[in-house]
C-alpha cells in the first residue's frame, strides 16, 4: 500500500486555498437556483395553460434547454453572445445555470400542480374563487409543499453543475483545482480536496431541505 503515487497528507494544507473558490461556487449556485425558481414557476404556469399561444413558448424553452448540455449553453451565452452583448463571466454563469435549472424546475412544478386533486379546485370554485385565486390560494401552496423533495434534488444537481462554469473562466472550485493541480502536478489530490468541499456543501443542502420539508409537514399529505 505504501507504493501509492499520491500524497493525501497535503490535503489539509491545501484546503484553505479553496475558500474563495468555494464562496464563488456557492454564489453561482444560490443565484442560479433563485433565477431557476422564478423561471420555473412562470414556465410551469404557462405550460399548463389551455391557450396554445401561452403554452408554445414554454414548451419551446423546455425542449431546447432540457435537450442540450449545460456546457454548450454556457459557451453560447458567454462566448457566442459576445458578438452582440458583453455579459460578464460570473453573470453568464448565473444566467446559464438559472435558465438550465428553470427548465427542470418547470417540469417539477407542473408535475406537482397537476398532482393536486381535482376536487381541491372544484371546491375553490364552489366557494366563489376565480381561477387565479384558486391557483394562488389553494393549488400552489399545496403543490409547493410537494415540490420540496424533488426541488432539493435539483438544488444538489445545480450545485454540482456549477462546476461547468469553469469552462467560461469563472474561477470556482473545479477550475481552481485544475490550476493548482497542474502547477504542482498533484491533480488527483486537488480533485479530492474539491470533492470534500462539494460533499460538505451538498450535505448542508440536504439537511436544510430536510428541515424545510419537516417544517412544511409534507408528510401530512400522505396516507
Amino acid at each position: 500500500m505504501s507504493e501509492l503515487p499520491w500524497d493525501f497528507t497535503v490535503i489539509p494544507f491545501y484546503f484553505p486555498r479553496f475558500y474563495q473558490a468555494a464562496w464563488l461556487t456557492l454564489q453561482i449556485t444560490v443565484l442560479g437556483i433563485g433565477l431557476g425558481l422564478v423561471l420555473g414557476l412562470i414556465t410551469s404556469l404557462m405550460r399548463i395553460s389551455k391557450s396554445k399561444i401561452i403554452q408554445g413558448p414554454a414548451l419551446f424553452y423546455i425542449w431546447i434547454i432540457r435537450g442540450t448540455p449545460l456546457l454548450l449553453q454556457l459557451f453560447i451565452i458567454y462566448f457566442g453572445l459576445a458578438e452582440f452583448i458583453d455579459i460578464p463571466r460570473l453573470t453568464s454563469a448565473v444566467i446559464g445555470l438559472g435558465i438550465h435549472n428553470g427548465a427542470y424546475m418547470a417540469e417539477i412544478f407542473r408535475g406537482t400542480i397537476q398532482s393536486i386533486d381535482r376536487g381541491q379546485r372544484e371546491a375553490a370554485y364552489s366557494l366563489g374563487m376565480t381561477k387565479t385565486q384558486a391557483m394562488r390560494r389553494i393549488i400552489l401552496p399545496q403543490a409547493f409543499k410537494r415540490s420540496v423533495p424533488p426541488l432539493g434534488n435539483q438544488f444538489i444537481i445545480a450545485l454540482k453543475d456549477s462546476s461547468l462554469a469553469s469552462a467560461i473562466a469563472v474561477r470556482e472550485l473545479l477550475l481552481t483545482a485544475r490550476q493548482i493541480g497542474s502547477s504542482n502536478l498533484m491533480m488527483l489530490e486537488m480533485f479530492v480536496v474539491v470533492g470534500i468541499y462539494y460533499l460538505l456543501m451538498t450535505s448542508v443542502l440536504t439537511v436544510l431541505v430536510g428541515k424545510v420539508e419537516k417544517r412544511l409537514k409534507v408528510s401530512d399529505y400522505r396516507s
Binding site: M1, S2, W6, D7, I11
Partner: peptide, 12 residues
C-alpha cells in the same frame, strides 16, 4: 484511511 496509505513521504 487515505492518509495512512502514504505515511512515508520520503519513500514515495
Amino acid at each position: 484511511a487515505l492518509v495512512g496509505c502514504t505515511e512515508d513521504p520520503a519513500e514515495e
